[in-house]
Design a protein around this nucleic acid. Sequence first.
DNA 1: AGTTAAAATGACAACGCTGTCAATATTCTA
DNA 2: TAGAATATTGACAGCGTTGTCATTTTAACT
Lengths: 342, 342
Amino acid sequence: MKVTINDVAKLAGVSMKTVSRVINKEPSVRKKTFDIVMDAVKELNYQPNLAARNLAGTSSFTVGLVYDNPNAYYVIDMQNGVLSRCKEEGYELVIHPCSYTDSQMEEEFITMIKRSRLAGLVLTPPLSEHSKITNLLDELKIHYVRVLSGRPTDDDQDTCIYVNDYKAAYEITTHLLKHGHTNIGFICGDKEHKSTSERLEGYKAALVDFDTPLNAAFLYDGKYSFESGVEGAKALLKDNNELAITAILGGNDEVAAGALFASRLMGIQIPEQLSITGFEDSPFSRQTWPKLTTAHQANDVISQHAARLLFTKTRGARNQDKEIITSFTPSIVIRESSGPKQ
Amino acid sequence: MKVTINDVAKLAGVSMKTVSRVINKEPSVRKKTFDIVMDAVKELNYQPNLAARNLAGTSSFTVGLVYDNPNAYYVIDMQNGVLSRCKEEGYELVIHPCSYTDSQMEEEFITMIKRSRLAGLVLTPPLSEHSKITNLLDELKIHYVRVLSGRPTDDDQDTCIYVNDYKAAYEITTHLLKHGHTNIGFICGDKEHKSTSERLEGYKAALVDFDTPLNAAFLYDGKYSFESGVEGAKALLKDNNELAITAILGGNDEVAAGALFASRLMGIQIPEQLSITGFEDSPFSRQTWPKLTTAHQANDVISQHAARLLFTKTRGARNQDKEIITSFTPSIVIRESSGPKQ
DNA sequence: AGTTAAAATGACAACGCTGTCAATATTCTA
DNA sequence: TAGAATATTGACAGCGTTGTCATTTTAACT
């Protein structure tokens, strides 16, 4: 029942070490030997034991995914992306949700890393933005890849995958401006998230390019939540909409859905009286009524690339054949929640 | 930097085996010895190496969570529940999404199990309902716990955690009947899911108890998706609602949200002209407008218990102190999407 | 062909822990 | 308080792989 590397070695008539070389795709194995071993592996249906590899080897075959994100869709997408890559490469994934406000976080982190001797870590926002964490990892000498909101201007492209929220916001805002909107509200997400400031800057840049003045009253400091969207819309549209706002950018899809909800409560017609847009294109941007105009962000693809980047870092130059993209720009998706100013 | 069991043993002045006994909470360790060792563990901040434990020990410290469920909220809740338990017990979790229609599934399963020598598996619906999988696991002699839709009448309570969807549906239907609704549509979920038939039976039972005839035309064969909810509502309300339906049970919250969406397209007022309800109480049942009446299902608690049950199975009688609940009944949550018949 | 350099392979210990079983310490019995 | 019964501890091998380094084979030269 249980097949070990030794069984394969015997069947192939080589040493265990050679089998090990083959399954790890190490160089200096003759093609012929390689084939013989592979045949034996297949015949016996051999599966290398992960625990033994982790124990004996220099680098382990386990990577971690760390997140502090209440958005289930986001987390699932990230997981699936990393997971699909892991499956291909024979790695294991351990997931580690945590709260960056938690004082025990640091300790927990260290515990996890000590216990499972991770080959590397994928960090997602907002954790990826905290130097407290990256410093800790640097200290522990753990490889990691960060998924970050930002523009690919920095020089640490071998550690980061950027999501260009600036551009996404710029384009969404432009879309609205082209439809004649000038008084555009923005319900910002959590201040602690880099995506919030990136999106805000993109919004501002678009206004500038269209010679449209920015009114500070158009901005609402919120959070990345449905409830915050409700509150934000109420605040922006208060006093019978004296600000004359005709469009609102939600900080993300959830916020936009909240804004939609609030508008409905106030009897406002979407998109006739008010355009609303989101970010991320999560499934429920298609489940609101009307459906949300938003910026599509391919989180599963992004996380796949993050994992790939991590693997190349961990194992040196192997797999360099496939080019790694380290910057992603969400693409705008126009649906029914936005339309011309009337 | 790296602390092994040997270091602890030396500091405590005992053998490695004794330290091992202490960290595994094995019996026959003198209280005094226990304390001495624990002090050493703390002083050195020792963390047992998981790979070594998995390799050397009889049962591993890794459990798996297997799912085939497109519902991100559900998956995340299940994960978090199992994960929280794992953290407490020092186990690792590997997650394994898979498709039960995939022909490679079986092979993948075997590969995963061979590779990581799992202590056990938590199966969630609909995978937990397939004898193909449970048979395979029985064959491989792998412990598992199934989370199932059903009533706790079966005798394999040491392997199953039941979610009483029958009762949930019964109560939701009763709620509607009490509000005077008699023509109640039901947009069923996937036929392959046990929850679909359970919910349907609960619905029927309530009708019987209220002497309300069931019209087969009130039932729509759908899927657990938003789109199916849209289609279902359109079908049930077609021809200007000649069936005179005044309430619709969505197969789950997503379906209900879809029905809500369709109703809106048709210009139907909710809940004045039509009551709509869901199941599960997932976050977006609070993000529709109006908010959904639904049946709250504590998936995180359920999965915690599943994990606990698995651990007691794996390690014999330990932890029996905390009683394990193997049956959960969702509780109805009344919100704005349902109201009296008008 | 005879050297020499380079490539391919193998022997064996080690990774950090637990299982087995033998050794010792403690408690109990008469 | 001796002797048996039991509770507690320890020595050591082994889990299945990989790293190190020695050895053998092949290729590349005169």
